[in-house]
Design a protein around this nucleic acid. Structure first.
Length: 525
DNA sequence: AGTGCAGTTGACTTT
DNA sequence: TAAAGTCAACTGCAC
């Protein structure tokens, strides 16, 4: 019996550009494993829709592996138990996987696996798949590290990888992978319009973005009406690793190079869109790094001076209204229902949902984070928690952004198509009242066939007053923590160095203008 | 043709 | 990926 190279798939459900798989395959016979871990899928931040997306991706992963003479062994159980059972039957030469920046549960699971490996003398080889650095000493040279990783060439499987004999490994040999997947229940997948998992779907989305949708990227990003087709829509595929971030970055660079050499007038426009997109790929890793560097921020605020800000004031009724899309604020409710239906929402509207919950409704952020984690098909813990905390104003280092849902509606959905589509009760309300239907006189309500308070909820808070109150509370609180050692620590540990660099640049530019030197100073003589 | 003025736009600051 | 306010520059128009 030859010892096998065990490749453990987690949030990296692909064959292309898979470093652990490629390296393991050059070492000896490979066995590919995915573990459906009940403790993770029963956790309050995961949902059946996400599981269904993963199962769809596993099905295609198995198919792609079989094209290379390999196959995917899908096991159900806790990771350490599954590994122990495997080890009882076959010799494991090494465990190969990508590093994962997950939640506290997957972190604990990884520690248990590490202990198991140590105990049994199994070497666990982990590799980076994002521009995220374990045990990052300083944020200062982070961008350079990101660039270096993205510039490395993509990994390919050796031509003829050697598969570990299935008979040796699996007692379920008679049951092909697809049958196992079919038996996993996804009851409760309540998102009829969600994206489908799998490599084929991912490639189609990527291709349509690069071929055409790209051109409306910047202009269509903000409005919920256009975002679904203008945004890249890669997030779910990146979150589950169906696409490799590096491959997307390199594809973006290649297309940029092509466009830079293209003399046609449209090329410059396309190039600008791609630059905006590339910036966001950067931010992707910047945020994940925060959770990697400080895993505790899943539970407590990044800035500990914000402990106590909202906890005691938590109002379960307001929270339930927000969750169900029944706040009585039309754009907020429309967005929540759209999200429940599709598992996706564009960035600006996500920010608005969190802002309204955090400020107007004055809700503590962890319950918001948990609800949205389940709703987002593209839930990526490393992006999720830092983002929610930033939008709810407890990081202490970011500008407080208070969204006015009425202004957002007027800006992003001026004709009210989005609101009317997702809130049929308001379909006949005229534009002038659509975003503040509670202002309608009763006679008008009757004429539009909607009674505010029964057919459509009355607003759960006064949106104007609650916004003003929240602003006052936030600035008072910030005043109090300003200049504290904690503020300096957060900035040092998590702050983007981008702003700093720009400040230096603009200061240099200003200095050059004010005190001309060298040849420039001769110009006026 | 130049001036004054109201209204608009954009860059920047403040909360 | 805020919103509101300030200010200077600009625009169109009347005289």
């Amino acid at each position: 019996m030859t010892a096998l190279q065990l490749v453990w798939f987690k949030r990296d459900l692909r064959v292309h550009d898979h470093e652990p798989l490629a390296r393991a395959a050059s070492e000896g016979p490979v066995h590919c494993l995915y573990v459906i871990e009940p403790s993770l899928w029963q956790a309050p931040d995961s949902s059946s829709a996400q599981l269904a997306f993963v199962l769809e991706s596993l099905r295609e992963l198995d198919r792609d592996l079989r094209r290379h003479g390999l196959w995917l062994d899908v096991q159900i159980g806790e990771a350490v138990e599954v590994l122990a059972a495997l080890r009882a039957r076959v010799a494991i030469a090494a465990l190969w996987s990508h590093q994962e920046t997950g939640n506290a549960l997957s972190f604990a699971r990884d520690r248990a696996v590490a202990a198991f490996c140590r105990e049994h003398g199994i070497v666990w080889q982990e590799f980076r798949q994002h521009g995220v650095v374990r045990c990052l000493p300083s944020r200062d040279d982070w961008s350079a590290r990101w660039l270096a990783l993205m510039q490395q060439s993509v990994w390919r499987l050796p031509a003829q990888p050697q598969s570990a004999l299935a008979a040796e490994v699996s007692p379920l040999l008679t049951q092909p992978t697809v049958a196992i997947l079919r038996n996993v229940s996804t009851a409760g997948d309540d998102k009829p319009a969600r994206q489908r998992g799998g490599r084929r779907a991912a490639e189609n989305v990527l291709t349509s973005f690069w071929r055409s949708r790209l051109l409306r990227y910047r202009s269509g990003l903000s409005s919920p009406l256009t975002a679904a087709s203008s945004c890249s829509r890669l997030s779910s595929y990146l979150a589950h690793g169906v696409l490799s971030l590096r491959a997307v970055v390199q594809g973006t660079w290649a297309l940029q190079a092509e466009l830079a050499a293209d003399p046609r007038p449209g090329a410059a426009h396309a190039l600008r869109q791609l630059q905006a997109f590339e910036e966001r790929l950067h931010w992707h890793c910047h945020f994940i790094q925060k959770l990697e560097s400080e895993w505790q921020i899943e539970q407590r605020p990044v800035h500990q001076g914000f402990i106590g800000l909202r906890e005691a004031a938590f109002d379960p009724h307001r929270f339930a209204c927000w969750q169900r899309g029944e706040t009585g604020l039309p754009l907020v409710d429309a967005c929540m229902r759209y999200l429940a239906h599709t598992g996706w929402l564009n960035f600006r509207m996500r920010a608005m949902l969190v802002s309204v919950a955090s400020y107007q409704l004055w809700l503590h952020w962890p319950p918001l984070a948990q609800h949205l984690a389940r709703e987002f098909l593209d839930y990526e813990p490393g992006i999720h928690y830092p983002q929610i905390q930033m939008q709810s104003g407890v990081t202490g280092i970011n500008v407080i952004r208070l969204y006015d849902p009425i202004k957002q509606a007027r800006d992003q959905d001026p004709q009210g198509q989005f609101v009317r589509r997702w809130l049929p009760a308001l379909r006949r309300v005229p534009d002038s009242f659509l975003f503040e239907p509670w202002r309608m006189p009763v006679s008008l309500q009757q004429r539009c066939g909607v009674r505010i308070g029964s057919d459509f909820p009355a607003p759960v808070v006064d949106p104007g007053q609650s916004l003003i109150a929240a602003r006052e509370r936030m600035y008072a609180w910030r005043q109090q923590v300003n200049g504290s050692a904690e503020s300096a620590r957060v900035l040092e540990q998590h702050g983007s160095r981008w702003r700093q660099r720009r400040d230096v640049d603009s200061r240099r530019k200003r200095d050059e203008q004010e005190t001309p030197h060298g040849q420039l100073s001769l110009q006026g003589l």
